Amino acid sequence: MTSPDRRLLLVHAHPDDESINNGATMAKYVAEGAHVTLVTCTLGDLGEVLVPELAHLAADRDDTLGAHRAGELAEAMRHLGVTDHRVLGGPGHYRDSGMQWDASGHATAADETGPDAFWHADLTEAADHLVAIIREVRPQVLVTYDQFGNYGHPDHVQANRVSHYAADLAGVRSYRPDLGEPWEISKLYWTAMSASRFRDGLRMLRDAGDTTSFEGMDPDHLPPFAIEDADLDAVVDAPEHVPAKLDAMRAHATQITPDGAFFAMGVDLAAVAWGAEHYRLARGRRGPVGDSGLEEDLFAGL
């Protein structure tokens, strides 16, 4: 039975982002009876298709990848136990913006994007779609990306902007009363990856002779989504939910190869590597910390 006392809202850019970043967190809170809502901003129409027999779904062919990924997302949510998952504005309202890699190795907007791309969305219009959900669900905690979208993807950056703006607008009594009764979100977190854990994991893989997983990543020069531990605020450590997380990731079959880096580790190492999901507190007051020196519950202090 869902508890009305703990409600978690996650805002992600594309199907699969949620399972990679927060799969264990989502499964844990569902198992504990909290209400978990996922909002996905686009259906990832421009994603790369990694399954040869489904290559015809790609944007430059049949252009039906978004609809297919909606099915993958539904299957992933089944594995995590999440029954409340929505698409911002409705399926197909915002299209994947695509991306490219810049000279610094960061993701950035593609040279050409369509007018319906999420990157070009009117910020107030997009926020209003989320305001309506916030006022309906009334979550105490919202999770999204940092201001850089963790690695620069334009849709991740836009999801951050929309989430913050909607969180502000949702609490204003006089703003758009037609969207529901006002609601103030108590805590807003940015997803993060612990630099120390990522560094240790890379070294373990390399020491084991694996030179292809996370190819090109150097433990001593990590990408910007790896956040040094001093800047982390919270951790949800749920190794018991790693099997569900990995099953959810496998459900995104067009995007994540079953023999890729995420699944290269044995069960025990995977529980260590993927069972602890970290966060930075971007809004609200930090609650009590545990033995880790971090909050160990996103609802801590509420």
Rank of each mutant, 00 (worst) to 15 (best):
1 M>H: 12
3 S>G: 13
4 P>L: 08
10 L>Y: 08
20 I>P: 01
20 I>Y: 10
22 N>A: 15
33 G>V: 04
33 G>P: 04
34 A>N: 04
36 V>D: 05
37 T>G: 03
38 L>I: 15
38 L>Y: 01
42 T>L: 07
45 D>Q: 00
46 L>G: 02
49 V>K: 00
51 V>Q: 08
57 L>G: 03
57 L>V: 03
59 A>N: 02
60 D>H: 10
67 A>L: 13
67 A>I: 11
73 L>E: 08
78 R>C: 11
85 H>N: 09
86 R>F: 09
91 P>R: 13
93 H>M: 07
94 Y>N: 02
95 R>Y: 02
96 D>E: 06
99 M>K: 01
100 Q>V: 15
102 D>Q: 07
110 A>E: 04
114 G>A: 05
114 G>Q: 03
116 D>R: 12
116 D>Q: 13
118 F>L: 15
121 A>E: 00
123 L>D: 14
125 E>V: 13
125 E>G: 05
128 D>N: 10
130 L>Y: 06
131 V>A: 06
132 A>V: 06
133 I>T: 15
134 I>S: 00
135 R>S: 02
140 Q>N: 02
144 T>D: 11
148 F>Q: 14
153 H>N: 12
154 P>F: 11
155 D>F: 06
159 A>T: 15
160 N>C: 13
164 H>F: 14
169 L>P: 00
169 L>S: 07
171 G>P: 07
171 G>T: 12
171 G>W: 07
172 V>L: 15
172 V>C: 10
175 Y>M: 11
177 P>V: 09
178 D>C: 07
182 P>S: 05
183 W>K: 01
184 E>W: 03
184 E>F: 05
191 T>I: 14
194 S>T: 09
195 A>H: 01
196 S>M: 00
199 R>F: 05
211 T>Y: 05
218 D>I: 02
224 P>S: 10
224 P>L: 03
227 I>A: 08
228 E>Y: 14
229 D>S: 09
229 D>K: 03
231 D>M: 11
234 A>T: 05
238 A>M: 10
239 P>I: 14
240 E>C: 07
240 E>H: 13
245 K>E: 09
246 L>V: 06
248 A>Y: 00
249 M>Q: 10
250 R>D: 05
253 A>T: 12
253 A>I: 09
254 T>C: 00
254 T>Y: 01
257 T>R: 15
258 P>M: 09
258 P>D: 08
261 A>Y: 02
261 A>F: 06
261 A>H: 12
266 G>F: 08
266 G>Q: 07
267 V>A: 14
268 D>R: 09
273 A>K: 06
273 A>V: 08
274 W>N: 10
279 Y>S: 07
287 G>I: 12
289 V>H: 08
300 A>F: 03
